[in-house]
C-alpha cells in the first residue's frame, strides 16, 4: 500500500484520534492521541493489509514545550513503513507501554525512561538499562542538562577565548 492509501485507511477508521502530517518523504507520519495509542498500534499490527509486525525503533525527544515518543514501524510482507508520534506534557509524562504489542519495545522503553524521565505504565521490567546503578543526577538526554564529569565543548568560533 502506498502512502495515501495507508493514510486514508487510518483516517476513516480512527477519525480524529489520528492526525496525519504532510511530509515530503514516502513514509506516512501521524500524531496519535494518547488514549487510543494502544488500540491504534494493535490495529497496525493485526490488520492483514497493513501488517506492521516489526518495530524498528522507539525514541524519546525533548522539545521546549513537550515530550514526544516516536515509533517507527515496518512491514516485510507489504514493504512499507510508518512513523507515529505521541505528544506528552512536560510535567509528569506518562504513556502506556508497547511491550504487550511488540516485545521489542521492552528495552527501547527502558532506555527512554532512564534518559528522558518518561514513565511507561505497565512495563514488565522498569529497571535502568544503560546508566550505572547509583546514578542520581537526573535525566541526561534532556536539553540543558549538566552533571558531574560533563565537559561541554569550548566555543572555538572566532573571537572566543580558549
Amino acid at each position: 500500500m502506498n502512502k495515501d492509501q495507508i493514510e486514508n485507511k487510518l483516517a476513516t477508521r480512527f477519525g480524529s484520534a489520528v492526525e496525519i502530517l504532510k511530509t515530503k518523504f514516502p513514509e506516512p507520519c501521524m500524531y496519535i492521541v494518547i488514549d487510543k495509542y494502544i488500540e491504534v498500534c494493535k490495529f497496525l499490527r493485526d490488520d492483514p493489509e497493513l501488517a506492521f509486525e516489526f518495530l524498528f525503533s522507539l525514541a524519546g525527544v525533548h522539545y521546549p514545550d513537550r515530550f514526544e515518543v516516536v515509533i517507527h514501524l515496518s512491514s516485510s510482507k507489504h514493504v512499507h513503513q510508518l512513523v507515529a508520534k505521541v505528544k506528552l506534557p512536560l510535567e509528569n509524562p506518562k504513556i502506556p507501554t508497547l511491550s504487550g504489542v511488540w516485545e521489542a519495545a521492552n528495552w527501547y522503553e527502558r532506555e527512554a525512561a532512564e534518559l528522558f524521565g518518561i514513565v511507561f505504565n505497565g512495563h514488565p521490567d522498569p529497571r535502568p538499562l544503560l546508566l550505572y546503578d547509583d546514578w542520581n543526577y537526573g535525566y541526561p538526554m534532556r536539553k540543558g542538562w549538566t552533571g558531574p564529569d560533563f565537559i561541554p565543548m569550548p566555543d572555538k568560533s572566532k573571537g572566543a577565548d580558549e
Binding site: 509486525e53 516489526f54 518495530l55 524498528f56 516485510s76 511488540w102 516485545e103 521489542a104
Partner: peptide, 9 residues
C-alpha cells in the same frame, strides 16, 4: 514470528 516480534534482523 518470535524473531520479528523481538526485533531481530
Amino acid at each position: 514470528k518470535v524473531g520479528l516480534d523481538y526485533g531481530a534482523s
